[in-house]
Design a protein around this nucleic acid. Structure first.
Lengths: 193, 193
DNA sequence: ATGTTCGGAATAAACGTTCATTCTTGGTGG
DNA sequence: CCACCAAGAATGAACGTTTATTCCGAACAT
């Protein structure tokens, strides 16, 4: 059957997600991933060439899913401020509801894997991922955002959001819907002219 | 002699700092640290009980040094805005001039070691480190800052700063003095009422 | 001579990966 | 309907490498 194969593949991805998100890359040896997925150690290599590719593939899947969620209900014709607030809130909500996804993506970014990835994203082909780039370019052009380099605006917007999510997941604070709204609006104050 | 011992000790710390900052914890096996420090592999264990303690001690030293630098020229009697700008600028300057220190501290925070550390810092004994806490408490009390939980204000202030330093070190952008000033002021916009 | 420090080969544990073997399955001939 | 079989999937013990740590003889200072 096809579904049986898919089951195992998904089980492996899920096990890797949980272990790596919770314990980091070191805390997730292949044997442990196999164990949690309920498969033999060698089975993983039937679905993924090696550990690096498993990690990269999982990252791509999560990134893809996040992108989809962010675009849900995004209206490009609304004013820039509203578009930003929408994206910020959606991002916070998604990360809070999927802490494992968030933690995994963070682990990935803070690893040797992630650096090359981000370098390509920011400097290389700017063809995609550009809901954000477009929004910020618009914002600067229309003079509703500060006239700062794109990278700085990104930092002002997402630096606080990701920090806040980290703190929420580590139980340093509890984010509810009103607090989310106020936080995103504070971020807007940082970038708006 | 005392200085000979101190030399080796410092050489080991410096070697660990460089390797871990540049390559992460994985890229810094003890044998390599010993090599770069110009000592035998076993010698490290005369100065540090094990790798974990070496890592923790190095972190404490860097944190201590950073704290001292931030307090240089800090005037508690100045207005809150000025105090914040001073701290922000000093932080950016220090991290840019000492990228290895910054990278090491980041590596530490994003590792199993760092989490317990931060938990103690934020939730536990609030007796120290409190230049920031005091400043933000004041800011909220005097109503010049937004009435948000301390953790959120911290995120709004330092999230962007640390992100920006990361981007600078990775060569995504080049921070000069004017850009530093404008970035810190944008952060202030995020937290001010 | 004697006590202290050093070095790097030796050690044991842990890791990613492989591979010879076993198990499962779906089709085929009787 | 059953017995059989080829072929793909799954397994986990075994392997080679890498790691932190130990240990003992050499080098040095006193």
């Amino acid at each position: 059957m096809k579904s049986a194969q898919c089951d195992k593949r998904l089980a492996i991805l899920q096990a890797a997600l949980e272990l790596i998100a919770e314990q980091g890359f070191h805390g997730a040896p292949m044997a442990m991933v196999a164990d949690r997925a309920g498969v033999g150690a060698g089975t993983i290599y039937r679905y993924f060439e090696n550990k690096d590719l498993l990690i990269a593939e999982l990252y791509s899947a999560l990134e893809q899913k996040l992108k989809v969620v962010l675009m849900e209900g995004y209206l490009p014709e609304k004013p820039i401020r509203e578009r930003f607030i929408h994206l910020g809130r959606a991002l916070l909500r998604y990360c809070i509801e999927n802490p494992l996804h968030f933690r995994y993506i963070e682990q990935f970014h803070n690893s040797p894997y992630g650096v090359a990835f981000r370098r390509d994203k920011i400097l290389g082909k700017q063809g995609e991922c550009d809901v954000f780039r477009e929004l910020f370019d618009d914002g600067v052009a229309q003079q509703v955002m500060k006239d700062l380099p794109l990278v700085i605006l990104f930092a002002l917007a997402f630096g606080p959001l990701l920090t806040v999510v980290r703190d929420h997941i580590l139980n340093f604070i509890t984010l509810d819907e009103p607090l989310i709204a106020r936080t995103v609006e504070a971020c807007w104050d940082g970038i708006r002219r």
